[in-house]
């Protein structure tokens, strides 16, 4: 029994750590980890994954919020798009065939990975565009010298469109879509990467929290698996978020790209094998 518990805990700690550091939320590692290593069915893995996504988000948020990385206005404005997408996705779930979606998702992940490694430099926008200025979406982050540096935000419509897509994917596939959220904020809206990670982390928690509540109330969460996983993921996420402010951004981008490719391979394999 201690072998089972220890194995679940180790898997969860690793998933939480990488999830917090990348802003992906840890759930993407928990599902394949539980299915492949612990031999539990998808239904159990997805339920535990949703809980672990909430746990990662909450654990990582402690340090993110305190250090001022989370941009709450951006999170709330974009969450409007995500929630709309999630509801649409949930509605569409019965209409579109799963393999087509998974393949589409895998391709999008690969594209995000490509963007991650080709775009370099983390220069800040000095001025928001008119819409973002009107909504006061800009913020400030500590620069290399420790002084607070203001940053601007642009292209809210573009970001919102990607967020609707991310929401649709969440509603359809039961995942956090953290990679897409970070990509939208980092690449399209030009938010600093660390702010994107922290803000995405908050948004993932909101969507997954609602999903997890539904799972819990339906009795679809197996406490025997979800409880040790939640504990491990929370611990891993706390450590991950402590490391983030000291992390090397270019290394983070490479790590992020590797993770995206891995999800793409996993999703593509699922689509082709028709699981």
């Amino acid at each position: 029994m201690l072998t089972i518990l220890g194995g679940l805990l180790a898997l969860a700690i690793l998933a939480g750590f990488v999830g917090a550091l990348s802003g992906l939320g840890g759930g993407v590692f928990i599902v394949p980890g539980l299915v492949i290593l612990a031999h539990v069915p998808m239904q159990v893995a997805v339920g535990a994954s949703l809980i672990s996504v909430v746990a990662t988000s909450a654990g990582a948020s402690v340090a993110f919020v305190r250090d001022g990385w989370t941009n709450l206005r951006v999170a709330i404005i974009l969450e409007c798009a995500t929630v709309t997408g999630a509801l649409t996705g949930a509605y569409l779930a019965g209409v579109i065939s799963q393999p087509v979606l998974e393949m589409l998702f895998a391709l999008m992940m690969l594209q995000s990975a490509y963007y991650s490694i080709t775009k370099h430099g983390d220069e800040l926008l000095s001025q928001s565009d008119p819409i973002c200025e009107r909504l006061r979406l800009g913020g400030e982050i500590p620069g290399d010298d420790g002084r607070m540096t203001p940053y601007g935000v642009r292209n809210l419509p573009g970001g919102a469109v990607l967020m609707v897509i991310a929401g649709v994917m969440s509603g359809l596939l039961g995942i956090g879509s953290g990679a897409l959220k970070v990509a939208a904020m980092d690449h399209l809206m030009k938010l600093p990467l660390k702010v994107s990670s922290a803000t995405s982390n908050f948004m993932i928690g909101v969507t997954a929290g609602a999903g997890a509540l539904v799972f819990l109330s339906r009795g679809d969460v197996a406490a025997a698996v979800a409880a040790p996983v939640a504990i491990g993921v929370t611990g891993g996420a706390l450590v991950g978020s402590r490391v983030l402010p000291h992390a090397n951004v270019s290394y983070l981008r490479k790590l992020f790209a590797t993770i995206l490719v891995l999800i793409a391979v996993e999703m593509g394999w699922r689509a082709l094998s028709g699981r």
């Binding site: 709330i76 999630a86 949930a90 909504l135 969440s170 509603g171 997954a208 609602a210 539904v214 339906r218």
Partner: peptide, 30 residues
Amino acid sequence: FLKDRDYIYVAATAYVLSGLLLGMALGRIG
């Protein structure tokens, strides 16, 4: 946001909350 009388964001947050509650009621979100 309500305390700040920041009504654009009050409306946005209310929209998110009601969306989440609707999703939970439908039993299909996330």
